[in-house]
């Protein structure tokens, strides 16, 4: 079995926590069970976050104020943390803006 390749995108300021880069092509290592979004968030915390993880993660989920989308659809419609990642999924983490 091979690794799972997906595309990550961070916007709305969330990219400032991951080296100021919006787009990340990543390869998740092979594991016996499918990758869930819950595991992806832990992977991001351990592998991508450069600083202040609490500005991205709360418990096992993202902090309040970050929307998660998979292929342009709100993760709430897809089972949230339990969603099973598919090859080439495009996962977006959007920090909501408040300025005006």
């Amino acid at each position: 079995m091979s690794e799972l390749r997906i595309h990550l995108e961070f916007s709305g300021g969330a990219e400032l926590l991951v080296g100021k880069t919006k787009h990340h092509d990543i390869a998740l290592p092979h594991q016996p069970h499918p990758w869930s979004l819950r595991q992806l968030i832990a992977w991001i915390r351990d592998n991508l976050l450069k600083e202040r993880a609490e500005l991205f993660v709360t418990g096992e989920s993202v902090r309040p104020g970050i929307l998660v989308l998979v292929n342009s659809t709100d993760w709430e419609l897809l089972g949230q943390l339990d969603y099973t990642l598919q090859p080439n999924d495009h996962v977006i983490f959007i920090s909501t803006l408040h300025g005006g």
Binding site: E54, L55, R63, P64, G65, L67, S95, T96, H98, G99
Partner: peptide, 19 residues
């Protein structure tokens, strides 16, 4: 969409972040 407010430290305004 947002049942809980974001932690204040995560919020940037236009004066700090620019626009």
């Amino acid at each position: 969409l947002f049942p809980s407010p974001p932690p204040p430290a995560s919020v940037t305004n236009c004066s700090e972040g620019g626009v």
